[in-house]
Design a protein around this nucleic acid. Sequence first.
DNA 1: ATTAGTTGTGAAAACGTTTACATAAATCCA
DNA 2: TGGATTTATGTAAACGTTTTCACAACTAAT
Lengths: 340, 340
Amino acid sequence: MKTAKTVASLKTVASLAGVSIATVSRVLNGDPVVKDETRLAVQRAIKTSGYHPNRVAQRLRSTNRSKKLIGLLIPDIQNPFYVDVIRGIEEYAYANGSAVVIGNFSQDPKREKLYIDILRSESVDGFIVAPSHGKDEDVEELINDGHAVVCIDRGLSNLNVDVVKSDNEKGAFNAVAHLIKLGHKRIAHITGDPAIPTTQERIAGYIAAHKHYGLRVDQKIIKGKESNFISGVEITKQLLALPERPTAIFTANNLLTLGALETILQQELKIPEEIAIVGFDDVYWATSLNPPLTAVRQHGFEIGQRAIELLYQRIQQPDRLPANVIVKTELMIRRSCGFK
Amino acid sequence: MKTAKTVASLKTVASLAGVSIATVSRVLNGDPVVKDETRLAVQRAIKTSGYHPNRVAQRLRSTNRSKKLIGLLIPDIQNPFYVDVIRGIEEYAYANGSAVVIGNFSQDPKREKLYIDILRSESVDGFIVAPSHGKDEDVEELINDGHAVVCIDRGLSNLNVDVVKSDNEKGAFNAVAHLIKLGHKRIAHITGDPAIPTTQERIAGYIAAHKHYGLRVDQKIIKGKESNFISGVEITKQLLALPERPTAIFTANNLLTLGALETILQQELKIPEEIAIVGFDDVYWATSLNPPLTAVRQHGFEIGQRAIELLYQRIQQPDRLPANVIVKTELMIRRSCGFK
DNA sequence: ATTAGTTGTGAAAACGTTTACATAAATCCA
DNA sequence: TGGATTTATGTAAACGTTTTCACAACTAAT
């Protein structure tokens, strides 16, 4: 027969040590007031009973928490960028005895809302969110209700909030500048979902690079619909069918890059001789591609770390002015753009 | 000034509706005993007060939970296979109003233990675990203490427990058989960490295929140290340096595959003409590789789904006999092995 | 020897639920 | 009409903590 052992509680420990539960609680929380003798007795009782504090009861009772529970809302767990972010957050949480609840809402605002509700009623101590869009009312409400919230990857247009994100414009600028310096004159840009702020920033970087190097911008080869693989395939097809075909493509994220690569491969075009490519998002398999992919590296791990640091701060002083952390990107130059 | 609004509780709703908290609770839980009139009044009060049940209090009080909290222990969140598993679990959880707490322990048993402790004291309703090794005492203890546990990817040697995993041996068999049928006679196998059960099963499949087709097994070209990228690089180098070089490599997971690919690329060997490759783990970027990768597909999403289904069952009837679910694999034939 | 202060501990309330039990009101049947 | 039954609701305990307050036992000061 399998029955759940009744786990040791404060009461168990208290009677074992011959003290009240209050005293046990004091020992657990390191209250210096308890006599050394009692402390030892209690500690012994804790050991022998195998007591572990019940975090649920702790969370219900106290507002002043050291072992935190963090809610994390991720738009797409399949995207390796977010996986890096998660790892950064999780590393820090682990080091501080905190736990992380992850909700992966797959870019679906309805699902995002459900998760917010769940996490709220789990009374998590704070949220880290990549809002599904710039005007995300559910996240706004969360903040207005006094919850600690840090945004990653994208901010909120209506509200001043802690944000940690990449320097998207600069990253795009560098990528395109690299192509221009290699002699490319006709560079297409496959953008992500135009509704997402990062998309716009990357477009801005693309244009800025053209301006900076005195190259004309052709709006017809800046195209994008959604931020996924399919969209990458479709738009690459359109671009490759153009009478005046671009010599290079700059893709706005790793899924678009994959779509582009697959299409180029199918049409048996040589990279970089016939078409060069540089992508936003460096991924761990970029060096195993043939040829290895030149890519804009976002420091996802660091973004995650900064986000949770900010969140801890925000929990401690809710009135601190919102911070805006911009994390640098890095252009990883490999062979997919060719050499000069 | 930013102060947390005091959220509505049963008490708020009760006084608003002019009933007792017990009645409100009954309405919330769909108890048919309440009069329609009162039910309506209460529902109105719930609406206007914006009440959401506090899951922490619910969890503290009752043992009979419908909205579950599931603890998920993942060895390596960077591995896309586990990401698929997570998605499967999470999809089901979402559909049932449950939440998932993820702990990513990065193959570190100490970290695994910490997470188990945390999740335990968060009183999660059940655990889904990929044990860090076959004799995982922490997981065993969990089960012995009466918790609901389902293992994925690997079982427990000492204990009979619900397990969901791929048919590793068959998958490996098919991959190697495919190579043999294409005419390869000297096929190397880069294995994962020999301590992990799946590694052994895949080796068994490799050998079985050789036996089945009357091919001699050369133990010298079955090599492996760890299950990571570095190991893939190292062992591929050794294999390629062999006087009698293999014509094909079968890699035991996606990270090893990447290591192998990078090495082959660096040595400028042509795939599949000079060296063919087939990998365990199909990944979403396999079709964008040049050439596209032939791979054994594990149905991670389904594995996740089956696991959480089993977990729900186990929670409801703790004494049910442990199930052992084997999920089929599928060989995705692409161009990295060449054509006949 | 009395008072004042200090030190260590316990009793009890509170957090927001669920639920066993009690009870008031309404209905039934003889 | 009156007792038994049913129906709907309320009261209060319990879950495992934290925390306020009270208090007993000392110690120190007069």
